[in-house]
Nucleic acid binder design. Structure first.
Lengths: 341, 341
DNA sequence: GGCGGTTGTGCAAACGATTGCAGGGTTGTA
DNA sequence: TACAACCCTGCAATCGTTTGCACAACCGCC
């Protein structure tokens, strides 16, 4: 009842003190300024009246909203929920609230979403949408909003903080695994190269092949236009159309790998007997697909927690130089890779 | 630059008018109050200065935050992302922002999260966490916060609005399908009965069995203690332990079904040759598991959109009587069901 | 030319909190 | 007893908008 109404004034007049006194009592680090007895009365009264502080008024006055914005491409992509969960848990513990928005990877949508967040006076931002060259990021830097990039990073040297995976190392694990099984003709379905993960994994692929004593064949490398099953299927079909034989395909992420499954099936190729496939991310349920996907495990939840922590740091210390936290991935071998027929 | 600073006052003094005039210009439905020429000047100036309205101040004054809270059990459960996407898309179009929080289904966490949301003065709430008897809901009703339940509903007659699936009808589809294949000994792994989905699907199971001319056998019905894979596995194992034979199991949702997969496998039972399995929700990627899961498809995204729409209605018309929107599910037959051996 | 009716703008009080400053009361010391 | 040093509490301004009200200027009309 009446929750909408009771303010600090009501509590004040109930106790018979000035609103500022109530404020001081309710504020942990000014409470010592007021007599214990009055403090108790105030606390009792605010409980009895059902007082709940108005965060809006608080934020307006203090210029801190205890809110951070999180931009992701699409919550429907299974990589993100665990990351978000990590972010929310860590922020929640610190008394912060996350506002999440989907951009679908289109810059224009990102801009309006960003506007909305800045309008809400978020204290900081976590971006999972970074492109290697990214106007959204430039804008944030210009506006001096504390910023942390997650999962993907950008070209900006030292101007941002990021929490990412060692993508090249991850790909190296897959290539080494496949080479160890005896594969020599290994294809690569790369993610979009304007995204750091696509770029780095592609670079890692070429390096790892060379390292393994294999020549990366340009005819066996194709770049998908998005991180989605459909894009993966299209890319794999295009690869098959080229007619160049291969016994394994390293996909830029799990969705692309699942798309490749479909393409192979439509060509009556069996996985792993005819073609081995690897993914990247170890997103939920890829252990249950058929065949269970061999993939690179990244630390979703931890990335979220670390990113949130890093952001809170930056909010406290906005001038600190950006750091790059790089987590090491691991290989999870399942049923989608085998010796070449 | 300097975004933090420029306010309506700055724009006003730049143009040489009073702040209230600027406010009127920037507010679509008061703009007609001011001369076209001045309006143009104000608009130009606010663009040039890079003015962005402070949503906090706006909300404080108008008592509308254009924000709604969304409570879900766990974003990591794949049913929710599509629902959330629907909610966010619909809210976004209306200029509203969603704040999402996970409760893990524990009432206490729900209470603190709710506090936080009310503190932020959300204009309304969407709950996907409803229990059949739910203190959170009672509190919302008491506080007169516009409320919409999604996916799960509650006992409160007519006091709430909800957007749910016809759960009993969905289960009926699976039972009819299995009965049609020739199954007679059909088991049921129910979801928690304090949740409406668990309750309704359980009720639907019993009805459908009777309808199909089969006697529901209490020894073949077990209630899982959560909607999770592990709970599904435990329940299925317990069922197997009872030693009573069955040739099909109707699971309360997809996660329980996947857990049942594991339990069957550990008993060297093949699906669907030895035991058929059905799920509920048709969550993403269950078409890719092995065997592809026969399940009940619900309209995730649409539920989200409808719930958001209904909430916006209620915000506009808070006294309107609650309605219950019930969406019809459909059966998707895949590889996990077959004629009994 | 005076008068009622628009029209457009300014004024100032909100919205609900926080906080620097001032003042009244108490205590301790000389 | 007087004075300095505290310790509490109240006062009032402020955060950035919105909005009811007052008021001045203008219009047309008789």
């Amino acid at each position: 009842m009446a929750r909408a109404k009771v303010t600090i004034h009501d509590v004040a007049s109930a106790v018979g003190v000035h609103p500022s006194t109530v404020s001081r009592v309710l504020n942990a680090n000014t409470r010592h300024m007021v007599t214990a007895e009055i403090a108790r009365k105030v606390i009792d009264a605010s409980r009895d009246l059902g007082y709940h502080p108005n965060a809006l008024a608080h934020s307006l006055r203090t210029r801190r909203s205890s809110t951070v914005g999180v931009l992701i491409p699409d919550i429907t992509n299974p990589v993100f929920p665990p990351i978000l969960r990590g972010i929310e848990d860590a922020l929640g513990n610190a008394g912060y609230t996350a506002i999440i928005a989907n951009t679908d990877g289109v810059a224009e949508r990102g801009a309006v979403v960003l506007d909305r967040m800045l309008g809400r006076r978020v204290d900081g931002l976590i971006l999972a949408t970074a492109q290697r060259k990214d106007p959204t990021i430039d804008r944030c830097i210009a506006e001096e909003v504390p910023l942390v990039l997650i999962n993907r990073t950008t070209k900006n040297e030292g101007r941002t903080t990021s929490v990412i995976t060692n993508d090249a190392a991850g790909i190296n694990l897959t290539v080494a695994h496949l080479a160890g099984l005896g594969h020599r003709k290994i294809a690569h379905i790369a993610g979009p190269l304007q995204i750091s993960t696509g770029y780095e994994r592609h670079r890692g692929f070429i390096e790892s092949m060379t390292e393994a004593g294999l020549k990366p064949d340009p005819a066996l490398i194709i770049v998908a236009d998005a991180y989605s099953e459909r894009a993966g299927e299209r890319a794999a079909l295009a690869l098959l159309d080229r007619g160049k034989k291969f016994t394994a395909v390293v996909a830029g992420n799990d969705l692309l790998a699942l798309g490749a499954y479909d393409a192979l099936a439509s060509h009556r190729l069996r996985c792993p007997q005819d073609v081995s496939v690897t993914g990247f991310n170890d997103m939920p349920f890829v252990d249950k697909v058929s065949p269970p996907l061999t993939t690179v495990r990244i630390q979703h939840y931890e990335m979220g927690v670390l990113a949130a922590g890093a952001l809170l740091e930056r909010i406290k210390e906005p001038t600190a130089r950006g750091v790059d936290i790089k987590l090491e991935p691991s290989l999870v071998v399942r049923g989608s890779t085998a010796r070449p027929g």
